[in-house]
């Protein structure tokens, strides 16, 4: 499968998910707009996946264990 075909297949799969959830609300023009948006999401995701990170590279996200103080 060529890279372009792989992208198309990923977009088709994700579009099927969105259509399953919301397809009843969307006309053909809106569905085409959703497809364009998903294409952008997939392109961005593939750019992210292409960057190698070390195992210890954590998400830049604060989380702290919680305990209510009396």
């Amino acid at each position: 499968m060529s890279p372009a075909e792989a992208v198309r297949a990923e977009v088709d799969t994700l579009l099927a998910l969105v259509r399953e959830r919301y397809g009843g609300r969307l006309d053909a023009e809106q569905l085409a707009g959703v497809r364009t948006a998903i294409e952008g999401i997939v392109q961005a995701a593939r750019a992210l996946r292409a960057v190698r990170l070390a195992n210890a590279d954590e998400p830049a996200q604060p989380f702290a264990a919680y305990r209510a103080e009396p």
């Binding site: 998910l17 969105v18 969307l26 497809r35 961005a44 995701a45 992210l48 960057v51 998400p59």
Partner: peptide, 20 residues
């Protein structure tokens, strides 16, 4: 309608973005 497309963002990709 555009926001419906965001269901297509995978959790792993969001976390990759946070790591990056």
């Amino acid at each position: 309608y555009t926001a419906y497309a965001r269901d297509a963002i995978l959790a792993k990709d969001y976390l990759k973005a946070l790591r990056l």
